[in-house]
């Protein structure tokens, strides 16, 4: 028992040391702070915010950061109604939203929205026209696209999704989406759904694309960070976090952190392009 205690103490010590030494600079402003930061909205943001929150709360246990999803629309509305402190949005808030709620969007990352299929699917490239056909429900079998003779299962997001609104505007060029589409609630859920469905197709934040899903190039351009960065891949968007009024207190500190070298490293590690 004694040995165990000693060991655990050691583990904690080592953990704290390693954390402190690596992040001490960027996390210094959080020292002595107290309070709760409620964050909700865009689901593409979650991995970055979660990692940042973990570091901040480890360095200073007096700070509590809660993270929920819901979609960009929800983030904007809830921060506007002062239900949460920071509303994440995967699209730029509209002038009207900014005006009504006195929102201050802060951009800390650039992302794209890529079409994804299951890794077992031989189809790896589509034209915009084919994409429109698939999502409208007029192309119904993978066979028509060079795949297996199985029906195409479309996965869609709900109306509050910023990822969806960007994809619909820039990827689908505002064409119709079939009502038969399955609806999932977040970028994470989209990825999981496509990873589990060999005949599914959906769209997900480029930062979320990993080995569990296969990216589909659109009109010959693959949805990669490089292509988003160079502007070759058209379905790109900024990642915003909004506060009601000028960011202050913990929210301002968090934004500063996301723009610091350490914060930007997290943004890049999670698959996005960081901004100064």
């Amino acid at each position: 028992m004694k040995k165990y205690k000693l060991l655990s103490l050691l583990v904690v010590l080592v953990l704290q040391l390693s954390v402190n030494s690596a992040w001490s600079g960027a996390l210094d402003p959080f020292a002595g702070q107290k309070g709760t930061l409620k964050i909700a909205g865009g689901t593409a943001h979650i991995p970055v915010i979660k990692e940042a929150a973990k570091l901040i709360m480890t360095a200073n246990p007096d700070i509590r950061i809660t993270i929920a999803g819901g979609g960009s629309g929800v983030g904007i509305k809830q921060v506007g109604e002062s239900i949460i402190d920071i509303g994440n949005s995967g699209r730029k808030p509209t002038e009207q939203e900014i005006g009504t709620y006195n929102l201050h969007p802060v951009k800390w990352g650039i992302d794209g929205v890529g079409v994804v299929v299951n890794p077992d699917n031989p189809v790896t490239a589509l034209s915009t026209q084919q994409l429109q056909g698939i999502f409208a429900g007029t192309i119904t079998s993978w066979k028509e696209l060079g795949g297996k003779d199985r029906s195409i299962n479309i996965y869609d997001r709900d109306a509050a999704s910023g990822t969806r609104s960007v994809f619909w505007k820039k990827g689908l060029k505002k064409s119709e989406v079939s009502k038969k589409a399955n609806v999932v609630v977040s970028n994470g859920a989209m990825k999981t759904a496509i990873a589990n469905d060999p005949y599914g197709i959906g769209f997900v934040s480029v930062g979320h694309i990993d080995a569990s899903v296969a990216p589909v190039s659109l009109d010959g351009v693959a949805p990669t960070l490089d292509n988003v960065k160079s502007g070759k891949y058209p379905v790109a968007r900024g990642l915003y976090s909004c506060t009601k009024g000028e960011p202050s207190g913990l929210a301002a500190l968090l934004f500063d952190f996301l723009h610091s070298p350490e914060g930007r490293k997290i943004v890049e590690e999670k698959g996005f392009i960081s901004v100064e």
């Binding site: 929800v74 509305k77 709900d158 109306a159 509050a160 038969k180 609806v183």
Partner: peptide, 18 residues
């Protein structure tokens, strides 16, 4: 066919603008 129930609809739309 894929379908949505009344209960699931509540859970999905709850977070919309009030």
């Amino acid at each position: 066919d894929s379908a949505r129930t009344l209960t699931a609809h509540i859970a999905l739309v709850i977070a919309a603008d009030f």
